[in-house]
């Protein structure tokens, strides 16, 4: 075998990989389009529903935070407390909300099993493709919401700031990876005990929202209490996302390495489980 033959085989191999990835990507995009159209057809708000629902919830949370601050006796112009030095209250809440809800939505979709089974009629489409397509839609909707609200905040405060755009995008993608990994892992572990899935779903719906830094900043927590919350990788995602917008925002005990490690470990673990228990994803796990 000559050098040219080897090079030809290598090129063929790389070409095959690129073609395969491209085909897979097109499948995911097609399913996400299909799901978006399906949702738009079933809602009075059309495609905007995926944008308006989280926005309603976010406005509710901002209202809660501002009301609590006012009840506590804080100045109405400084409802964010000590975080006001770094962020407008709306921007602060938004940065927490878009990461936590991205994780929550994607993980819950994995946990609940596939509702969208029609594309499985095509043999090329696997359950994981559908899951990735749904995550893609959530990611696009929340990214649109984030940019729109940041744009509005920037417009009113006239202070344009995005210190590390690369970090912001990376945190977004890592959160999606972690959410998919977490959801899939729990689904397969739930095979051992169905109550486990139900308990985790409840925890995610309620507890994680209040412990992932939507309402507070890590630097506001006393140093001796921080270890009780910094185990939560979503908190790292939220704080790093805030840091990417304003590099002066203090992030004690927060590390990108921890977020990367959690995301990669969860995704790898879940993909191993997925290879062996693919059919479990088709079973609905509704409460």
């Amino acid at each position: 075998m000559t050098f040219f033959d080897l090079r030809f085989i290598l090129m063929m191999f790389i070409n095959r990989i690129i073609k395969g990835l491209r085909r897979q990507w097109m499948i995911i995009v097609a399913i996400s389009d299909y799901d978006r159209n399906r949702q738009a057809a079933g809602s009075s708000l059309g495609s905007w529903e995926s944008l308006i629902n989280p926005m309603q919830m976010m406005l509710f949370f901002i209202g809660v935070r501002v009301t609590l601050s006012l009840l506590r006796g804080a100045n109405k112009f400084a409802a964010g407390g000590s975080t006001d030095i770094y962020f407008n209250i709306v921007a602060f809440m938004l940065t927490g909300f878009c990461i936590v809800f991205l994780f929550r939505n994607v993980a819950i979709k994995s946990l609940s099993g596939l509702k969208l089974k029609a594309p499985l009629y095509y043999s090329r489409i696997k359950p994981l493709d559908i899951l990735l397509a749904l995550s893609l839609n959530d990611m696009r909707a929340l990214a649109t919401l984030s940019l729109a609200i940041l744009g509005v905040v920037y417009y009113f405060t006239w202070s344009f700031q995005l210190d590390s755009p690369g970090l912001a995008i990376s945190v977004y993608l890592l959160t999606v990876m972690m959410a998919i990994g977490f959801g899939l892992s729990v689904v397969f572990l739930g095979r051992l005990n169905k109550w486990l899935v139900k308990i985790i779903k409840r925890l995610m719906q309620r507890v994680i929202i209040f412990t992932s830094g939507i309402f507070f900043a890590t630097f506001e927590i006393p140093a001796h209490l921080r270890p009780f919350i910094t185990w939560n990788p979503i908190l790292h995602g939220v704080e790093l996302f805030r840091y990417s917008i304003n590099n002066e925002y203090p992030i004690p005990d927060i590390s990108l390495s921890y977020l990367i490690l959690c995301s990669i470990l969860m995704l790898s673990f879940s993909l191993i489980l997925y290879r062996t228990n693919e059919s479990l994803l088709l079973v609905a796990n509704d409460d």
């Binding site: 978006r36 905007w48 990611m139």
Partner: peptide
């Protein structure tokens, strides 16, 4: 690359939603 990713994600979403609307 980030600009393209965000433009594709956000722009595509808005364009599709507007088309459906």
């Amino acid at each position: 690359i980030g600009i393209i990713v965000v433009a594709w994600g956000v722009g595509g979403f808005i364009a599709a939603a507007m088309k459906k609307a």
